[in-house]
């Protein structure tokens, strides 16, 4: 299984029946395909849609109907459209149960950096800064180690922040961490990954849960 599908398989377990969820652009968007079909989950799109459906068939493609990643989509039964101010009122006001976002770095205090690399063209933060403060629960999914081999799970983020102390849970290809008042806690290791490996690839200081488990992928 690829690193990405491993992360996606684990992250989709965070979505429960009845939730209203915002999935970030990129890897988080792929989670939508893995949500059990009998669940009634409303997916929110910042551009003004509650109830994203499947990608359209060729015949269903409608340029007036896109998601926040600017991809053509459809709607589910019960969907609604609204303007951008209402969309973010919904987000800021705490009406979204869960946001799952990608990350570049996460710190041991739950800071997230995911929008800007100094020296590179700044593309913008889109809705990420609003989501990390508004959603009831914020989960970050990312690869544990960068392509250069550096830990992306940091003592302190080196990149400009998206939000400070905003992450509730981090899911990587190696482990799952929770951010609590006591600090960052390792709660799961991925199948085949030892605690030692997680330690050696994590720059951040973390506690190990007494109930540390390994979740098998399905």
């Amino acid at each position: 299984m690829s690193t990405r599908s491993l992360i996606i398989k684990r992250a989709v377990k965070e979505i429960q029946d009845g939730m209203v969820v915002n999935l970030g652009i990129g890897m988080p968007t792929l989670l939508a395909n893995e949500i059990p079909s009998h669940y009634q989950v409303l997916l929110q799109s910042e551009n003004g849609l509650l109830g994203i459906g499947a990608y359209p068939t060729e015949a269903e493609v409608d340029p007036d109907l896109i998601n926040a990643g600017k991809e053509t989509v459809t709607t589910v039964n019960g969907a609604s459209f609204f303007d951008s101010a209402e969309s973010f009122a919904m987000i800021r006001g705490g009406h979204i149960d869960l946001a799952i976002l990608g990350g570049m770095e996460v710190s041991e205090t739950g800071d997230l950096a995911n929008w800007m690399i100094p020296g590179k063209m700044v593309k913008g933060m889109g809705g990420a800064m609003d989501l990390v403060h508004g959603a009831k629960r914020v989960i970050v999914v990312m690869e544990h180690v960068s392509k250069k081999g550096e830990s992306k799970v940091k003592r302190k983020c080196t990149l400009p922040l998206t939000g400070q102390g905003v992450v509730h849970r981090l899911i990587t290809d190696l482990a799952v961490f929770d951010f609590t008042e006591k600090g960052m806690i390792l709660i799961e290791t991925a199948p085949g990954i030892t605690l030692e490996e997680v330690r050696s690839k994590t720059e951040a200081n973390f506690l190990v849960s007494e109930n540390l488990t390994t979740k098998e992928g399905e």
């Binding site: 101010a85 973010f88 508004g134």
Partner: peptide, 19 residues
């Protein structure tokens, strides 16, 4: 244009921009 200094940009979070 941004790198040339011909253009300035004020990046604003999407929800903040809307509000």
């Amino acid at each position: 244009q941004l790198l040339n200094g011909e253009l300035e940009v004020e990046l604003t979070p999407q929800g903040t921009l809307a509000e």
